[in-house]
Design a protein around this nucleic acid. Structure first.
Lengths: 124, 124
DNA sequence: AGCAATTGACTACATGTGTAATCGGAGGTT
DNA sequence: AACCTCCGATTACACATGTAGTCAATTGCT
């Protein structure tokens, strides 16, 4: 399973942006958002390899990293994890929280409506 | 902020079930779900106090613990955190994931519909 | 009064995590 | 051939975390 730390996740996420990618690629991508030392990122890549979250092909000098776990899967697992821990597994109360805090956009609402329509078509 | 670890969260969550509560109360509550040593739970209570997530009133011998942070707030922060990290801050894609994995219930859908209706009334 | 049990405080210790620095070797440069 | 450079591997180290154990004081029991 994923026992990926916060920092490790950022690196993995950068890799999901495009792969295979060299360490330098990842470092460049993270340079924008994070203020991490190159060595730090390499350490994190290493730990991700050890955790079997990513792997690499040996190119000439540098490695070509690629993810072993799919972003969609990871995201689904994390979401369901949080929803089950914090909302007894039901997603509506989470959305309710967002509605309350004004964090619900017109776009969200439109998408939700369409999701619901689809769900109802499929489920009855 | 909350830098509450997983184990600490379980204890805090047990406290939210009802407070003020003694350490023994919490231990009893967690006994059902977790297989933690009494001492472990007391350590976690202590750490939560140090982190100013909870506090206590000194009763006679044992303390009466109570939360300093509200579950609703905590839950909102964690949710928004996850949604922003994994879904660029928009909640609909998260719900879409649930719809896809058959984890959306009739009840969820009804609640979502009512949330949406309310949102639209408020927002246009 | 004296002892046992209970409670929070303090201590312990292995492993995880954030954040690098150093090492040794492969490749390019002169 | 000798050296510099760039890469991954290995090592470092402080603080967080999971998971308890020991200590000292208080309380209840006899």
């Amino acid at each position: 399973m994923s026992d990926i730390s916060k920092a490790e996740f950022e690196v993995l996420n950068a890799l999901w942006e495009g792969y295979p990618a060299t360490a330098s690629d990842i470092i460049a991508r993270l340079n924008n958002s994070k203020d991490w030392h190159e060595k730090t990122i390499k350490t994190l890549l290493n730990r991700l390899v050890k955790k079997q979250a990513i792997d690499f092909d040996k190119a000439q000098r540098s490695y070509l990293y690629f993810p072993l776990i799919d972003k969609v899967d990871y995201v689904a697992k994390e979401s369901s994890n949080l929803v089950s821990r914090l909302f007894s597994g039901r997603v509506a109360p989470l959305v309710a929280g967002f509605a309350h805090s004004e964090s619900l956009s017109r776009q969200d609402v439109d998408e939700l409506k369409s999701l619901i329509a689809q769900w109802e078509k499929d489920n009855e």
